[in-house]
Write a protein that binds this DNA or RNA. Structure first.
Lengths: 120, 120
DNA sequence: TCCATAAAAGGTTATATAGTTATATAATCG
DNA sequence: CGATTATATAACTATATAACCTTTTATGGA
């Protein structure tokens, strides 16, 4: 048998992974995560920080919490939300690097024109 | 100046990152990527491998190509698609690990019940 | 107990897009 | 050139969901 057998990934797993990515595919949610990077915040704090509406924000927080990215800690009349899994930021950084690389590569292609005007 | 200054990430960057994740948030596209892991394939190959409709598949391939994840190489009457950036698979693995960890943690919580029935 | 504030839940609308069917483009071969 | 095969595009439908508004729940203080 071969060394790297290419088994098909089960649809169940693909679905779970797709769902995870879907959670990260909204600017508003990335904004929330970005703000929470500094530490726990209440919903009100996040309303001020992000400019999102309270109801809308609350729903996004629910999505993020159910996906296991945030934890919710009620405190009196407020609720603090906090990053649970810092993996998110690693993922974002990797993606940023990838996008950056791609743009650089594309930029280089356009430099090929220079060889016309600057030949000896 | 502080050591770890928490600058806000620009909306432009957040949008690009969100778009990238959005590309990965569909089971059909993950399926395509998963199949292409073994090597380049034509559209027809992928129709057979994934069971997706040809038109539908073609659209997904366009999305994946425009996002910089795949490359397209016409060959005669066919077109070969190929993974460009293996980062995708690293991302998927990380996400799978995260999901797995979370499920294990949840499972442990339910084991707390055992202490009732099994005490000396 | 009543009030004020914080957060969540419910309902509505607008928009994006996955999937399907039908058609168009393009390349190879007779 | 006409026929065939492989891909891509266009138009359409159905569904999901983000944003907004309103209402409800819950907590702490007067």
């Amino acid at each position: 048998m071969s060394d790297t057998v290419t088994k098909q990934v089960s649809p169940e797993v693909l679905m779970a992974v797709a769902d995870y990515f879907k959670v990260l595919s909204e600017v508003s949610r990335l904004q929330i995560l970005s703000n929470l990077r500094a530490g726990p915040m209440t919903v009100n704090d996040l309303v001020d920080a992000t400019g999102l509406g309270q109801a809308n924000l609350s729903k996004h927080l629910k999505v993020l919490t159910q996906a296991g990215l945030l934890s919710r800690t009620p405190s009196g009349v407020s609720a603090y939300y906090e990053i649970v899994d810092p993996l998110v930021f690693e993922l974002c950084e990797s993606v940023c690097d990838s996008i950056s690389d791609r743009l650089l590569q594309q930029a280089q292609k356009f430099n090929q024109f220079k060889s016309f005007s600057k030949s000896p």
